[in-house]
Amino acid sequence: MRAPHTATTLGSAAPARDGPAQQVARFGRHVAEMCAVMCVTLILTGLAVTAAAAALGTSNPITGAPAATAAVATLALAASMTAWMRYRAMDWRPTLEMAGSTIAAGAVMLTGYAAGVVPADALVGGTCGLACVAMVAVMLFRFRLYASHAHHAPSGH
């Protein structure tokens, strides 16, 4: 297991503490990384789904099969978040919380669609938007983790 990075001040054996500005900046960097992962994932998933739909004779999968498209997008987002966070050596608990927030967002939007509250043309975009909000909420809940220097090595549980 990697030891977290700590800096010491001159003449002191105690670790230096980051100020609020450094913590907010580090947290913001983590949010930006996760947003970038989500955006790249949606672009690649959109291209793959559109190509698959064209091969099956459907021109627009968002309107032709909105629930299936939103489900695929939800699973792709959760999988890419999991892969990125594990690559960044995050423990399983925050990784699963993050992936779970995306799946929960997709479930809420699909339930709204099934109930007639969410229109088909807003389902995929709304799922992405709600997943982003849910992701930031989970990150805020664990602000100290995402604002710290430490990357927690995989622990196998």
Score class of each variant (00 low, 15 high):
residue 2 R to T: 13
residue 60 N to L: 07
residue 5 H to S: 08
residue 38 M to D: 10
residue 85 M to P: 01
residue 9 T to Y: 07
residue 10 L to P: 11
residue 39 C to D: 04
residue 35 C to A: 14
residue 61 P to R: 10
residue 31 V to P: 05
residue 32 A to Q: 10
residue 92 W to N: 14
residue 95 T to A: 03
residue 129 G to I: 02
residue 35 C to G: 04
residue 123 L to Y: 04
residue 15 P to C: 04
residue 117 V to Q: 09
residue 150 A to I: 03
residue 59 S to L: 10
residue 135 M to K: 00
residue 99 A to H: 03
residue 143 F to R: 02
residue 119 P to L: 09
residue 7 A to Q: 12
residue 68 A to Q: 11
residue 72 V to I: 15
residue 49 V to K: 08
residue 3 A to E: 13
residue 36 A to M: 08
residue 65 A to V: 11
residue 76 A to W: 01
residue 47 L to G: 12
residue 44 L to T: 05
residue 3 A to F: 05
residue 105 A to T: 08
residue 24 V to D: 00
residue 43 I to Y: 08
residue 41 T to C: 13
residue 63 T to K: 07
residue 131 A to Q: 01
residue 87 Y to M: 10
residue 8 T to A: 13
residue 132 C to E: 03
residue 68 A to L: 15
residue 6 T to C: 06
residue 82 T to G: 14
residue 53 A to K: 06
residue 24 V to P: 00
residue 8 T to N: 13
residue 48 A to Q: 05
residue 26 R to Y: 03
residue 64 G to F: 07
residue 137 A to S: 02
residue 71 A to T: 14
residue 94 P to H: 08
residue 38 M to K: 00
residue 107 A to C: 11
residue 62 I to M: 11
residue 112 G to F: 04
residue 37 V to T: 09
residue 127 T to F: 02
residue 119 P to Y: 09
residue 81 M to R: 14
residue 144 R to L: 05
residue 136 V to Q: 00
residue 36 A to T: 14
residue 3 A to R: 12
residue 134 A to T: 00
residue 147 A to L: 03
residue 88 R to D: 11
residue 145 L to N: 04
residue 103 I to Q: 01
residue 89 A to R: 15
residue 139 M to D: 01
residue 139 M to G: 00
residue 32 A to H: 09
residue 52 A to P: 03
residue 81 M to K: 13
residue 103 I to L: 15
residue 89 A to E: 15
residue 53 A to C: 07
residue 128 C to W: 07
residue 3 A to S: 10
residue 89 A to L: 12
residue 22 Q to S: 15
residue 143 F to M: 03
residue 39 C to Y: 09
residue 48 A to G: 07
residue 152 H to G: 11
residue 120 A to S: 11
residue 150 A to S: 13
residue 105 A to V: 09
residue 152 H to V: 11
residue 51 A to C: 05
residue 38 M to S: 15
residue 154 P to N: 11
residue 117 V to F: 13
residue 71 A to K: 05
residue 123 L to W: 03
residue 157 H to G: 12
residue 100 G to A: 08
residue 64 G to S: 10
residue 107 A to W: 06
residue 62 I to R: 12
residue 30 H to W: 13
residue 15 P to A: 07
residue 41 T to K: 04
residue 73 A to H: 09
residue 123 L to S: 03
residue 88 R to S: 13
residue 53 A to Y: 08
residue 94 P to A: 05
residue 75 L to C: 14
residue 104 A to Q: 02
residue 18 D to F: 10
residue 137 A to P: 00
residue 102 T to A: 15
residue 48 A to W: 05
residue 72 V to E: 06
residue 92 W to I: 13
residue 33 E to I: 01
residue 14 A to L: 14
residue 98 M to H: 12
residue 30 H to L: 10
residue 106 G to C: 02
residue 85 M to F: 06
residue 67 A to Q: 08
residue 11 G to T: 07
residue 29 R to H: 15
residue 65 A to L: 12
residue 80 S to N: 15
residue 156 G to R: 07
residue 112 G to Y: 04
residue 134 A to D: 00
residue 110 L to V: 01
residue 125 G to Q: 01
residue 59 S to M: 08
residue 90 M to H: 15
residue 70 A to C: 07
residue 10 L to C: 05
residue 132 C to Y: 04
